[in-house]
Design a protein around this nucleic acid. Structure first.
Lengths: 363, 363
DNA sequence: CAAATGTGTGTTACCGCTACCAGCGGGAGT
DNA sequence: ACTCCCGCTGGTAGCGGTAACACACATTTG
């Protein structure tokens, strides 16, 4: 009496779980989807059965039956390649476990108008929500457009999110403060700073963290040499050259991201300065560049993949809530960063042993 | 007489197409898929109806009904971040249009044994096939393991694929030859070469292309200075320093990838050589690094995203064929590359105007 | 104390598509 | 002429879930 079923070999279904728990499939479904109106004891036995059978719902069936939440958009614009790769990995992981497809689109333009137009591409495909990694998370044009369309969005690493929007970030201020603290503890007192792009809120947070750490040590932040950078390697070359060319050359330089830190190291080498012997250089982000320069960069690592995962979770949860008509729960999630100490930082050279720099070779 | 249907508003289904074409849904399904046993005239009218209604099948329903092909594995190991990001974008695009989920796993180890173990992770999830971008596409350990498991795999950029395996690549030989041709046309006669990792077949293809281009010009390839590199920035520093330190310094250097080309530029700058004035430097791959160094690199662009797409298409097609018991069709696909001329290359300096290099500063 | 309102659960009817098999017309085999 | 088979097509029955509704039973309300 073989079952003429087309069912794939041995995969456990919701029915199996229902039978094991002594309830109906519907109740199991409710338990899985955080449904209301399930008695606590019933829920427990269902959860137990799920664990016992190692059941995981079939995403295809789920989205077919529910008829929604199958596509999440991801709009990116030239972040560093390392960042994007990490981000995609995290996003993909979250998307898979939620049974959702990722629809990714590139947004090359810097123009606000064109950026806004891009969002319309999502309108034609059946995307239900959008994830915005930096730097797009700062784009007012895109956020406004998405708002008009009524399309839910989650931003990542946006400095000052609007109160009722979804956002995931790390504490840039605390991280920068911690890194500065580390340099101070090594003995550095003349620390130079390369600021990030002024339009990114994170830039200001990082600079504030730097300043406050100095203040805590009794150093006047305004006396610390700071140069404006724009997160690009190129801007790092210029800022780095200015800082290292000063008569009172800093013994350490804190760049607001790895690209600018790498550029600063390159400048130092051209000036025949040893890193970290003559000058310590630290960055921020821990992108792939951090380990492909020599010496490898001391930097702050953002949990990029985890942030992407968190972003998707937040968004999917919000979508569910919208359908259910329930109020929103979390609007922001702050993940923890980590310091990564590598070879580009060390104690300052004892006074008197400081080397003289020569002027850098013209590129 | 409203339809109490849960159907989402206005999405066209296979039934709509069937009605429009005057056939049954089943026939439409056949046309969409493999499509044996459909009269040519019938097929035409169905195709017409599909186009008319702008129909695209619901992937969730499809994989639910078919009960398979919902997860494709992607195993990667530290390629350059730029490569990975591009690759993921392409893979994701193909996965979405095929209605398949991507399951990505990192393989950090260089050890053959551990590499083999990784594949077992896919066994537990219901992955039906695996995509292997470089450098894993060259790993015999992984390929053997996958073979034992009977898991179909498609390799990307593998030099010498086994005859009946699936592979996607570009013509490294032709690309290297073309790039060398370009340097020759600029007027260069003393061209140095930095080889890639000897265990990658692509390295040898690129070197062969270089040699053959020289031969065609009547230059003895063995007289051209060549240094062994390993695709890393570090190895490029060493090889670059050797080449530029020669008494008969080359007027152009062709590095087998962008990382080594970037390293060579860095060395040139430390020797106070101008690029491209004193020496042209060209790379291969067009990774993000190519545009983040100064001057920006002339290089060969691989259509990475397209290669990923092609890989998935090949794999999914093969999966279908296996189920249908049909013989395999394509086993290899060669995509076309493109030369990207930027600022790191130019004509050689007229004889007599050549600058003298100073020895590079110790790092 | 009857009616109105909640709670927790099961039943039914699908979602959009494809595997499986039945049916049908017609050329080949005998 | 009568099977037999083959190319082509349609009907039917699900795939594994969930929305909507139905329905007992408990609790509040006028």
């Amino acid at each position: 009496m073989a079952k003429p079923s087309r069912r794939r070999r041995g995969v456990t279904t919701i029915e199996d779980v229902a039978r094991a728990a002594g309830v109906s499939a519907m109740t199991v479904s409710r338990v899985i989807n955080h449904g209301k109106n399930v008695r606590e004891s019933t829920r427990a036995s269902v959860v137990e059965a799920i664990k016992q059978l190692n059941y995981s719902p079939n995403t295809a069936a789920r989205s077919l039956a529910a008829g929604h939440a199958t596509h999440i958009g991801l709009l990116y614009a030239n972040p560093s390649a390392g960042y994007l790769a990490q981000f995609l990995i995290g996003a993909l992981h979250a998307a898979r476990s939620a049974g959702v497809h990722l629809v990714i689109e590139a947004c090359e333009s810097e123009e606000a108008e064109e950026q806004a137009g891009i969002t319309r591409r999502f309108a034609t495909s059946d995307v239900e929500g959008v994830v915005l990694p930096p730097p797009l998370s700062e784009s007012q044009a895109i956020l406004a457009e998405l708002d008009v369309m009524g399309m839910p969005a989650v931003t990542v690493a946006m400095g000052t999110p609007r109160p009722d929007s979804l956002n995931v970030r790390i504490d840039d201020y605390a991280a920068a403060k911690e890194m500065t603290r580390y340099l101070l503890d090594l003995g550095h007192r003349r620390i130079g700073f390369i600021k990030g792009h002024p339009r990114h809120i994170a830039s200001h947070d990082r600079y504030r963290g730097f300043c406050d750490a100095l203040s805590d040590e009794g150093i006047d932040p305004t006396s610390a040499p700071a140069e404006q950078g724009y997160f690009s390697y190129r801007s790092g070359l210029i800022a780095g050259e200015r800082l290292l060319g000063r008569p009172d050359r800093p013994t350490a330089i804190f760049a607001s991201n790895d690209d600018m830190a790498a550029a600063t190291i390159s400048i130092a080498h051209r000036m025949e300065l040893d890193v970290p012997q003559d000058v310590s250089v630290v960055g921020f982000d821990d992108t792939a560049l951090a380990t492909s320069v020599w010496p490898e960069l001391t930097t702050v690592k953002q949990p990029i993949a985890e942030m992407a995962e968190a972003a998707l979770e937040l968004l999917i949860d919000d979508l569910r809530r919208r359908r259910a008509g329930t109020a929103r729960k979390f609007t922001e999630r702050v993940l923890s960063h980590a310091m990564v100490i590598r070879e580009s930082s060390g104690p300052p050279a004892p006074p008197g042993e400081a080397r003289k720099a020569r002027s850098p070779a013209r590129g």
